[in-house]
Design a protein around this nucleic acid. Sequence first.
DNA 1: CTGTTTTTGTATTGCTCAGTCTGTAAATCA
DNA 2: TGATTTACAGACTGAGCAATACAAAAACAG
Lengths: 203, 203
Amino acid sequence: MSSQIGEPDRPKRGRPRRFDVESALDAMTDLFWRQGYGATSLDDLVAASGASRASLYGVWGDKDALFAAALGRYAERFTRRVDAALAGTPDRRAALARILNESADRLADDDRPPGCLRCRAMLELRGRPALDTALDAAETSFRADAARLLGTAPEDGAVAFFTAIVDGMVVLAEAGADRATLDAVLTRALDQLAPLASPAPAR
Amino acid sequence: MSSQIGEPDRPKRGRPRRFDVESALDAMTDLFWRQGYGATSLDDLVAASGASRASLYGVWGDKDALFAAALGRYAERFTRRVDAALAGTPDRRAALARILNESADRLADDDRPPGCLRCRAMLELRGRPALDTALDAAETSFRADAARLLGTAPEDGAVAFFTAIVDGMVVLAEAGADRATLDAVLTRALDQLAPLASPAPAR
DNA sequence: CTGTTTTTGTATTGCTCAGTCTGTAAATCA
DNA sequence: TGATTTACAGACTGAGCAATACAAAAACAG
């Protein structure tokens, strides 16, 4: 939205950047994902991004703005996952199952960052004025994706149920649940949601 | 468990305490519940407990130990809620519905502390060696309560599903969901769980 | 009354952190 | 070439934090 390919707002004069803005944001998103907002210092972000402290402030402003950008990036990734699931399966029911199984795989995979940046942020950062709008945007985006997956409006109760299941699996995984336990949860959730996710052609 | 009524381990000599240990812990539990671990400073705890800084260190040791005690207290409160639900309803199905509705009421009530200390701690503090055992204990206690409610073993998938629903409602509420939305979630959860929670006499 | 024991109040220490400042490097423009 | 513009690198600042130190206060024992 704000940055097109090629970054047209990049100035023509002056010393060029030593780092790539997009991949730096990706790296910092992973770091926030892994450690949370409070436990991630600016020194950590400098080390992960490859950019200097001054550069981070120059591009994003402050730590809050940086986190908001990371949260937006995180939400985009989920949107792309839902796109892929809807495009790669015969109907919504299968797409739903694929998303939930993917999520469980990721939560139980020790190599990937644990947990969920959005959930963690929701519990850690609600009430901070500088971040509330970013949290709202992430939630709206997530609900819209869920609604596309289920074939309902974002306000539908099924979307809330789906959200609760995903977020519940996140906390469960953090509490130590293994893949089989997560499977017990998502199986029951699919029992409940499958009748609603009508097998109409995906988009 | 550790402290009987009357506190028999209280020394006879020396200056008496100016504050009550139990009610101080209650106050600090509420504060941690409201603000989380990281956002609660020792000055906050001093103000909330009525005890001095030195006294808190004298009784509990350090901030980690203090939080562990608060988390234990929090878990005990839930156990008592389950006891009351099982004792005050004709069968497990009704007790289950009562617990979920109570939880939704609390999550949507602006007067009570928001969210859930256990969930928040699980996402914020996993990996801290000094607190991992306290987190495990809280999780075990919660799962045992859920199992009593459902009439199954704590390892049963239904317990995991119940846990995911409760934790999911917590995140949902933090994201801004109203009581009606939470109701849509718990209604579907009860649909799924009611057949399992056999109407056998509650303990 | 004197000594002992425990709690209290407050000052202090040492550390981490977000954000800023200053000088330098690397590019373009004239 | 020299001026201008932008980015880099690292030192610095001021605030907030957990934890400790230490002396005064308040009880009891003899």
